[in-house]
């Protein structure tokens, strides 16, 4: 058994690129940014609910939208320069249900894999460390349970 059956190159370099991206935005804007807030701030364009009509969303929704669009286009550039188009084999109901829980949980706990996982750990935030330990443990238990129930991939 090996820990990295397809090697470490793509992981280490890909992670470094993500780190450079967050560092670049920090050098320019002065703030560490994760990805999940994009989903709340973008809802302020369409929802009239009081929560989404707060001033804070109007102040940050445009630049967060740029990051979100950039993230999509960055992956397009990867495919066109050195990658291949990709379609997942994960069932649509898992994508939808998983997205629903992830969207709710990330906003409820104020961070996601990039917010708590990269920005939080990088700034030695104890709440983020706890959040990462919790979501990683729970996700491993859920993923292993689903696998043992015969759900694949």
């Amino acid at each position: 058994m090996t820990l990295f059956p397809i090697g470490i190159f793509q992981y280490a370099l890909g992670g470094a690129l993500i780190g450079i991206a967050i560092s670049l935005m920090y050098a320019f804007g002065g703030q560490l940014v994760g990805q999940s807030t994009f989903f709340s701030s973008s809802l302020s364009y369409v929802s009239r609910a009081k929560y989404f009509q707060q001033e804070k969303w109007k102040l940050q929704r445009n630049w967060r939208f740029l990051i979100g669009i950039g993230t999509i286009l960055g992956a397009v550039i990867f495919v066109m320069t050195m990658g291949e188009w990709f379609t997942t084999r994960v069932q649509w109901w898992r994508l939808f249900l998983g997205g629903l829980f992830v969207g709710f949980g990330a906003r409820f706990s104020r961070g996601c894999t990039s917010g708590h996982g990269i920005c939080g750990l990088s700034s030695f935030s104890l709440p983020s460390l706890i959040a990462v330990a919790v979501f990683m443990s729970v996700a491993i238990i859920v993923a292993l349970s689903m696998k043992s129930l015969g759900v694949s991939p």
Binding site: G74, V79, T88, F104, R107, C112, M146
Partner: peptide, 30 residues
């Protein structure tokens, strides 16, 4: 909220393998 939210996040992540940033990038991969 830190612990409850992270637990719910973990359930969704384990079901789907998706997180907010990776979902957007995944769309970009077609």
């Amino acid at each position: 909220r830190t612990v409850i939210g992270a637990s719910i996040f973990g359930v969704g992540w384990g079901i789907s393998g998706l997180c907010p940033g990776s979902a957007l990038a995944s769309l970009g991969m077609g």
